[in-house]
Write a protein that binds this DNA or RNA. Structure first.
Lengths: 200, 200
DNA sequence: CGACACATGTAACACGTTACATGATTTG
DNA sequence: CAAATCATGTAACGTGTTACATGTGTCG
């Protein structure tokens, strides 16, 4: 879904050819998600077929130019007006994996949680490094990076929350409220936005 | 990728047939992601073809049973041991949309951010309601729901952060530090885990 | 000249969705 | 009996990936 509308959005700014669309897409999103060039062409073909864009011959150097049609403009403004629904987002593989790890006998869920936590922290460090080394004036670029950072931080908090829940579950509600350490209560595990220095 | 390993995980517990696998998958993940039954069968066929599972005739009532092979067991334990990489996760349509909204002339990015925020808050309320109405003893179920809650909360914070950044960017660093309202600084926009009562 | 970036495409495949066809069993 | 649920599959299509084929332009 996303790249279809991505191309429409880029074409709403100016006519373009396939190769150009890829580089514009990547300069808008900061090349965090390199866009497959083959797919650009197949998507353009589909959009053309559906009347949302139209091929307008070749420019002076033989590049196949495309232009947004009125139908495409309508489709696009519909996209802008409609929030991204949570319903049609892809399944979260991590959540599924943890759920299955817990319910499958013979699987050490705690070990999986810890391995994953290390991986996510590592990723978080990559992201903050990338962010530090990039032009702070390029807004869209920076916000995309920060989107990933926010998500990764939430993931770490969730992993910690899972581990705490597992422990509590292990002590199968035999202990009464008023327990051992601290921290293991409901939500709010760990401070948010604590990106650096959470390596364990 | 996820459902392939999901089926392997379920089959590592006990032999099963297609229909059964779907209901087990959904009872593990809390039917937040209803699993397409058609795909279960095609995936089983692929797994069989690749030697990770094998069809073992039909049970007494004519249901096509499958069993995990040794190769499948190896593949599965590899999955358990390897953390989910951030590299091969799907693109985040929301982040792309906002990035394009900012870079495309003639698009009201602030309006899009606000519409999205309302939608996400609404979703968050749905999730907390679902969580409240569910069995608190079903760990895996609850954690999956909370995974979505953590992610949605992070999304709201990010959206707020985007809006603040846009405002700051609008005043193109002509104002000096020491400014108008408050709140619009760097990270930590809004308190985390504040699920209820953030409707605006 | 040779390597590399530019530029356009195609083929094969994995994965996901919706929809359809078909039949058995269960239940109101 | 009629409707719902159980159970297995197929077809068509959208979307994404990797890999290949093919040519032009540029630059060291």
């Amino acid at each position: 879904m996303s790249i279809k509308y991505g191309l429409l959005a880029l074409l709403s700014d100016a006519d373009a050819y396939g190769y150009q669309l890829r580089s514009r897409f990547e300069s808008a999103t900061g090349s965090v998600w390199p866009l497959n060039i083959g797919q650009v062409y197949t998507t353009l073909a589909r959009l053309d077929r559906d009347g949302l864009i139209e091929g307008i011959g070749t420019d002076g150097d033989g590049r196949a130019m495309y232009r947004l049609t009125n139908a495409g403009r309508t489709e696009l403004s519909g996209w802008w007006d409609t929030p991204v629904a949570h319903a049609d987002r892809p399944r979260d593989e991590l959540a599924i994996k943890i759920a299955l790890a817990i319910t499958t006998p013979g699987v050490d869920a705690t070990a999986i949680l810890q391995t994953q936590r290390r991986e996510t922290i590592r990723h978080l460090q990559d992201l903050t490094r990338v962010k530090r080394q990039s032009d702070p004036d390029d807004l869209s670029w920076r916000l995309v990076a920060e989107s990933l950072i926010f998500a990764a931080e939430a993931e770490v908090r969730w992993l910690d929350h899972c581990e705490a829940s597992l422990v509590r579950h292990g002590r199968t509600r035999k202990t009464k409220p008023g327990n051992t350490s601290g921290a293991a209560d409901g939500d709010s595990v760990k401070d948010p936005q604590a990106t650096e220095g959470t390596t364990r």
